[in-house]
Structure formats: C-alpha cells, structure tokens
Design a binder for these strands. Structure first.
Lengths: 323, 323
DNA sequence: CTAAAGGATGAAACGCGTTACATGTCAAAT
DNA sequence: ATTTGACATGTAACGCGTTTCATCCTTTAG
C-alpha cells in the first residue's frame, strides 16, 4: 500500500507539501503540484479516510436514527441523503426498532466520533438523555422534541390537521374518527388537540371512542375499518388518518365491506404519497423533503460554520375522490 | 477530551494494558482491570473510533449501493442491516440514482477504507470496473452480475417465473402479457426466457407486443393497464408483473376500467409484499430477507475469517384472488 | 538599496489506539 | 534446585494525514 509518506519520498518533497496538494492549498507551485500528482497517479494512491478523520476530527458522516425504514419516512430519508451528499456528507442509518439500547449505540457513535452529527427521525430515548449527547455534536430531530436544546424541523401537525377539519366540517361531516400514530408523540397530541378544538369550535361531539392509536400501515388501516364497523355505535361519517397508508387500508377494507366512499365514509390521509395519488385519496401534503433539507441546514451551522437559511414550509390539502 | 494515554497515566499502567482492558484481553489481572475501568468511568472515556479504524484497518462499516431506496428493496435492506448489526457492522447507504459517478464514489470509499465491504443492490457500473475494485475489499451483489469474481445472492428468477406460468397456463390462460423491469438486467432476461420457453413448451404464442419494459411502481402498473387496453389487439388473459407494486397498479386501473379480475384479466405479482397481501394479489414469494442474510454471510469469510453457511432458498407461489 | 511582504517548502508534533516483542514474576514440573 | 511456562505488564513502533511554526527565497514598496 502506498501512503502519503511514500509519495513524499518518491517526489522528493515533504509530507506537508504532498498534503497541501491533496487539499488544494494555493501555496504549492504549479510544477510541484504536477510532479506530485503524477506520482500519485502512477502509484494509484488514495488517502486513507480513517487517517484523515483521525487528524481532522471530522468523519463527514451523519447518523440517522429511525425505528425502521418504511415508506413514510422515505421522502425524508432521500431528501436528507441528497442534500447531505451535495455537501460532502454521507448518511449512516441506524435502524433501532424503537429499542433504546440500539438508539444508545447511535448516540455513542456520535460520542466516539464515528459520525459528526445525528438526525432523529424517530426515537424513544428521553429528551433529557438525548440532550446529554448534544455536547458531542449537533443533533436535529424530525420528530418534535420536548427539549429546546435539540433542533427540530417537524412541522406543527396542528395546522395540517386543522386544514383537514376545515375541509370536512363544511361538507357536513359531524362525526369524525381518528386513526392516530404513536400514542405519546407530540404529533399525535397535536393532532388530537386540533381535532378537539375544531369540534368545540363547531360545537360537535368529540368521539374519543373512535380514536384508534398506533396505526401506521395499510394493515392497520384495515383493522381500523373493521373495528369501526364492530363498534355498537353508528359509523362516523369521516375518518382522519395518520398517514396515507392507513387511509389506503381503510379505503380498501371499506370497499370490501361495500361501503360507499365518500358517501358512507369520507377518508383523509396525510403526506400525499404516491399511494394516495394512485388510490385517489384526499390528503394533506406535508413538504417532507423540504423538512429534510432544513434538517441538514440546521446541522450546517455547527458542522461547517455555515449558516444556511431554513425554507418556509406549509401544508396543503389535496382534494381527491374520498371526500 | 480524555484519551487512552490519559487513562494510562492516571491509572499508573501503560497504554498497552489499558488497551487490553478495552479489548477484553484475558491477560489483565482482576484488580488492574477494575482500577482502569473505574478511571475510565470517572473520566467518561470512550475510545475514538477513527483511531481504532486507522490502527486496525477495519471500519466495521459496509456500504450498500442502490439506485434509490424504495419499497421493493426494503426487505433486503432491513434484513441486511439487521444481520450486519448482529455482527457489529454498520451499513452505509449510497443512493446513486443510477449515476455512475455516484457509484464510483462508493467504490472509492472501499478503496479509501471508509467501508470494509460493499453490497450492491443495483448498479450500472460495468462488471469489469466493479471487479477492479474487488482487490480493495469483498463485494457482493444482490443483482446478478456477469462476473464470477463478484459474489451474488440473487435467485434465479427463471424458476419463480416458471412457477407463475405453470400456475396460469393450466388454468387456461394462453395469452400472457409481461410487465418487466430494467431492460438489460439479467433478471429481466431470465424472466423473458422463462416465459418464452414455457410458451414454446405449451405451444402458445409469445406476445412480444405485450412486453412492457421499465415498470417499477404502482403508477407504472396503471400505465401498463391503459396501454394494454389501447393496443389494437384483444386484451391478454393474464399478466405477469415485475413486482407487487406494478401488479397493484394494474389491478387498480383494471377495476377503474370495470374489468373483472381474474375474469377478464388474471394478475400475478412478484415478491409477496404487504401490498399484495392487502389487495389479495396472487404473487411469487421471493425470500428477500434470507437473501440479504446470505449476502452478509458471503462477506463474512473475507471480512471476519468466518465461513458462514448459505441458506437454501426457493420461490413459492401464494395464490390469492387475482388468478 | 533595504525593509517589509509574500510565497514555497520542510521539520516535527499531533490525533489515538493497536500490537509485536521484551521483561519480570511466580508457580508447576522435573 | 532448576527448567519451563503461563501470566501480567511495559516499550516502542506503527497506521497515516494534518497542521503549526520556522526557514529560505523572491518580490515589491519605499
């Protein structure tokens, strides 16, 4: 293996000069640079990343913590990977299955300098513990965190949800069900608040018996639909779903049960994924890729000393055939 | 920052002994170990990964090259990440969008020792060029490669496809369309061969006019369905799809066009994802997670000097409601 | 003509563990 | 009593760039 020292010896210059060539330092004469580059080429030399990282203290790697990789987070993941790459950073994914010990592994990797920063997509570690790792490097979260020390690019789901309600209620929907996500997440609480406030505002009943927690997938959506039908009470006239997948499940199962959509049941999804587009589900567009970019921009300050502006984001309702 | 040397000084032992403690060497007395661990704890010490990697020449990171992250590859990705993690390896994802220069970046990272090995999910770099990187570390491919130097865990799609045909033809289907994938991939060729051979065997027409290349998503499936209807010729009686998503698209569009499935058109998907389960699509189960494990096992030999057995894999037809 | 400024380059320390080899000790084997 | 060997621990080199500070030479300004 050829290393920098070897290049130095063969070229007759010092390691410092070779290093300068590698780093495009202006303080190298043209001829010197040419000579050294030539020798590097002949020896098929590439610098060792680990040595660079050890020296500089930077790995140019960012860790991404997520419970699992699924379709919902893909736009965020892809958006983040792309912008990070543009700035020379690579993304390492930590799939944790919501296991604290695996999450800790990711945080420890920040401490051990395997990664320069962390992006949290979902995590169950307490905000307090997460904060204790902030001193080792910047941490940004997609999920809203209780702790101001941790940057967040999550959008206030309250507004998105309110958008959906202001769309449904004027259409005459009074009894509205909710397929919710993670029970203790801020998003879920925010959505519940939006719902309960809207109901109060319009003087409508809050149907807590039609709250369905922990719904994430198509299958969960189907389960919710069946559960609604089995309830002793009459079917709600509309359902707000935590994401498009759940909405798709509800829709498929509703059709299978010969319900008319939106006649018997209106359905609203969330995220505006391809699936909702295909199935014609009304949904709330959540500018996820833009959030991912903001996440990287937030890290840019501490990481590269460059302050990048946060993009302005807002929700949008895409009306299709299910409302 | 406290480093190993500091621990050594404070404990009164040498760096070597401290290192032995870190690496659970048996040649350290109980008291010494206890003392050193105590000091490490007090100073909140963790070893620096970059230093370790530089010393050992191993990063315990494996790069994964993929065009993009999508639902089809998720089982592979998740399966691989899981087994790798169990053995102390982390996975770095390179999203390339089939851009050779981005792929080269991944290969260069192998050369520069940022990763110890590479797993290719999809890549457009020539087999010859890929091979030229084999000397820097083990490379395994999910996609079948033309080059024997590169390990592959892809299954012979020929068998899976034949399974589907042996299911359809006895049911009386004679005119069979094909929604295919990447035109020049070995999988696609293999599928075409399986189709053409089966057709010959049963003395049925090969409908090349009903080959639809480059279909990957639900939207592609819908497109295919519409294209079939627009063709001057009568509709085929069945269609084999490159994956469940395409099948789902075909199915949804078929329903929208008021076709009966399987009456007017039988549909077979591929991969047995949740989607096909939900929509009741007959599909070929492709043991993808097991393939991912095999991929890691293949890397285990060169990487850890441990030969791990390859699991035996085979396709299975899951009959549902679309055939 | 000289001092100040600037550019090219080198020496050496640094970042941080790992590991081959050497040394010293004490107990078991002969 | 002596050899053999296992065991605990230390020494020092190694892996490989980066970076600070110093040096030397050439301009340019005064």
């Amino acid at each position: 293996m050829s290393n920098l020292e070897r290049i130095a010896k063969l070229s007759g210059f010092s390691k410092a000069t070779v290093s300068r060539v590698l780093n495009h330092s202006p303080h190298v004469s043209q001829e010197t640079r040419a000579t050294i580059l030539q020798i590097m080429k002949e020896l098929d030399y590439v610098p060792n990343r680990n040595a660079i990282s050890l020296s500089t203290g930077q790995t140019l790697q960012i860790g991404m913590i997520t419970s699992s990789i699924n379709e919902i987070m893909l736009p965020f993941l892809n958006g983040f990977v792309e912008v990070a790459e543009q700035h020379g950073f690579q993304t390492i994914i930590y799939t944790t299955n919501d296991d604290t010990s695996k999450e800790r592994q990711a945080f420890e990797d920040l401490r051990q300098k395997r990664v320069d920063a962390l992006v949290i997509i979902s995590c169950v570690t307490s905000a307090k513990e997460v904060e204790s790792y902030c001193k080792y490097g910047p941490i940004v979260s997609w999920q809203r965190m209780d702790n101001p020390a941790i940057g967040s690019v999550a959008m206030d789901q309250f507004k998105g949800y309110t958008l959906a309600l202001d769309h449904l209620i004027p259409k005459g929907h009074t009894r509205i069900a909710n397929a919710l996500g993670r029970t203790y997440s801020i998003n879920t609480r925010s959505r519940q608040q939006a719902y309960e406030q809207a109901m109060q505002k319009y003087n409508l009943p809050v149907l807590r018996q039609f709250y369905y927690p922990s719904t994430y997938t198509i299958l969960d959506g189907e389960r919710v639909m069946r559960a609604m039908l089995q309830q002793s009470e009459a079917l709600p006239s509309a359902i707000l779903c935590s994401n498009d997948h759940v909405a798709a499940g509800v829709l498929c199962e509703a059709r299978r049960q010969h319900l008319r959509v939106p006649g018997d049941l209106a359905i609203v999804g969330f995220d505006d994924t391809e699936l909702s587009h295909t199935l014609g589900i009304t949904t709330i567009r959540n500018p996820i890729a833009a959030q991912a970019q903001n996440a990287f921009h937030l890290l840019s300050g501490p990481l590269r000393g460059i302050d990048m502006p946060q993009a302005e984001l807002c929700f949008e309702l895409i009306e299709r055939t299910t409302t």
